[in-house]
Design a protein around this nucleic acid. Structure first.
Lengths: 344, 344
DNA sequence: ATTTAGCACTCATCTAATGAGAGTGCTAAC
DNA sequence: GTTAGCACTCTCATTAGATGAGTGCTAAAT
């Protein structure tokens, strides 16, 4: 059996209706709502075919039909009319993403909020990925006796500070000497590399050259821990999920929100399977908790390097064309803005 | 009518049972479950009295009784046997709060987690309060051309960093000069004061003494904004609320979680009405969303100064003795630990 | 050969009715 | 003052129809 033009029209009608109503739709209603020029009986026959093709299914005998995962997939791949964002929406995104930003954290939280507001879905934003940031500069500032404040700046604009215990007194000059060596040796190196071996090397050099006490080793170890790169995940609009009829069930809400608290799993949800826009529909999802959800995600870049990802999560019955348009447009804008920001 | 010993026993029985079962309890069941040595009929008469006194109420005719807000209040004030924490619980809290901590943020998030785990309720932790922190030291580190990283250390151990746009090039020395003056002038001053007038004063002095460009004014203004003290609120164990039978209703869950996203309101929830432990029961709460919830909160201190507050939020039908014991013990431990930490 | 009308049948959902169970309040006896 | 007995009340769970949307099949119409 082949998909002909009429079958496509009917499938599109079913999906578009279901996206709005979340109710199974029958042949009679389709004939009434959509002006296809054919009778309910004909639609019934076609629907029967579509069911054999696995594109739609009946929740129970003599209910209407709803799209299957395969149906959504076919819709997204072949049927969907790509939506052009409204001028207003574009304007909002442009405005919000070109705002001058100094810290990448701000970009992330802000994006997350905007994304969930525009789509009425839950947004997931994945911050700087491991291994992408390189060392920029490090400084030590004296703090309490036996403690120093370490400020580390990465090339992607992230600034981190940590109070480190040194365990013995060091004066500002000594700290600066240490920092100078570190800066010289580590500039532009990936943090991974720094962690792996570079530190050892530097350490032996330091103890020789500057005769800083042997305990400097500990300090370096602390720094090492302090630099632990965390790929932060931000969620936005989690409450939007509660408005979806598929989450009327309290147990589902519980499972969902429990999942939302696990950063590691959320990251996996955004893991791109290929470059560009990723669309994961229903059962395609690796987590069974999300077998009735879909994820639209895309990666953002600084220059050509992938830095992180953004995405929206919603019921399988989401408005794909809109979600895709927004995620796509936003990643482009963010990438552009970040790239520009880092070049200035 | 007076509360005699028997009435108290019965009220206590009703409340203790309701805390566990969340179901109205009747005279017969009380007689069966609790060994009070009196018949259901007698209990019925007493319950009738307790109802007239406003301490218990019937959800509907011929259901059992449940405690009223006034009943809980009476229970908490007069009836409740103060609970001694188990050795194990104490040990956990001791261990978790004495852990060496450098940054106050860690203390807060950690406390929040621990608190919700131990009580199975939702925890709210309010971070450093406005006006309590004084200026410690400030540093400027060169960053990109026209930008510097400002690192500000407050006396309570909070370290903040911000990238500030200066708009013109300044070298490291000049930055250090500015920092030196600022440090000298501002050390130990409250941030409020710094903001209000001190900056103006310093600024006029700076331009005279060091002939730094007039635009330094802008930089100072940015710093001013950067130092905006935010009283951060942390929530923990919000999902615990979903296990409470009073939140079986999805609309309630929605309202609740929407509220959880409003930091400002959450802060008010913890606003202490008096020193020490605060207990707000049901309708006593200022927000109508929480008229079937209770809040147990307490403030924590560094030395004698109140820095923030911690609290737990749960259904009015919460285990008060346990919640109170835990909140009380934890604030003491945190205060001790923070005070010790700042003195070292 | 398609398309359509007609019709019997299915199944979820809504409504009303029924009965069980828990609990009360009152009265009278202990 | 306390208790047993009893009629009464109200919720909740269950059951039985009634309703309605929808299907699949067959036969007639195009």
């Amino acid at each position: 059996m082949q998909m002909d033009e009429r079958k496509k029209k009917i499938l599109r009608a079913i999906i578009q209706d279901y996206i709005v109503t979340a109710e199974p739709i029958g042949s009679r209603t389709i004939a009434r709502k959509f002006d296809l020029g054919i009778s309910p009986a004909t639609i019934r026959n076609e629907m029967s075919d579509l069911e054999v093709l696995g594109l739609i299914e009946q929740p129970y005998t003599s209910a209407g039909r709803i799209p299957s995962d395969a149906g959504y997939r076919y819709y997204v791949d072949c049927l969907m009319v790509e939506e052009e964002l409204s001028g207003e929406e574009k304007a909002i995104i442009e405005r919000e993403t070109t705002r001058r930003i100094n810290e990448i954290q701000e970009v992330i939280t802000h994006t997350s909020k905007l994304l969930s507001q525009l789509t009425s879905l839950t947004s997931i934003v994945l911050g700087p990925l491991k291994g992408t940031s390189t060392f920029g500069q490090i400084h030590f500032l004296p703090y309490q006796p036996g403690q120093a404040i370490m400020v580390m700046v990465k090339d992607n604009g992230v600034v981190e500070n940590h109070i480190v215990d040194i365990g013995f007194n060091v004066n500002a000059e000594e700290l600066q000497q240490v920092a100078a060596v570190l800066n010289q040796k580590m500039r532009g190196q990936s943090l991974k590399k720094v962690k792996k071996g570079l530190l050892q090397e530097i350490h032996s050099e330091l103890t020789k050259q500057h005769h800083l006490l042997d305990k400097a080793l500990e300090m370096l170890a602390v720094i090492l821990d302090g630099c632990e790169e965390k790929e932060q995940v931000y969620l936005g609009g989690t409450l939007n999920m509660l408005n979806q009829p598929e989450f009327r069930n309290l147990d589902k809400v519980k499972t969902l929100f429990r999942f939302f608290e696990e950063d590691e799993s959320l990251k996996k949800l955004l893991q791109p399977t290929h470059e560009g826009l990723n669309i994961t529909i229903g059962g395609e999802n690796i987590f069974k908790e999300f077998h009735d959800c879909s994820v639209i995600s895309a990666t953002y870049r600084i220059d050509e390097e992938t830095i992180g990802a953004i995405g929206v999560l919603g019921p399988t019955r989401m408005n794909y064309s809109k979600a895709i348009a927004i995620v796509d447009f936003m990643t482009r804008r963010i990438s552009e803005n970040l790239t520009r920001g880092c070049q200035r």
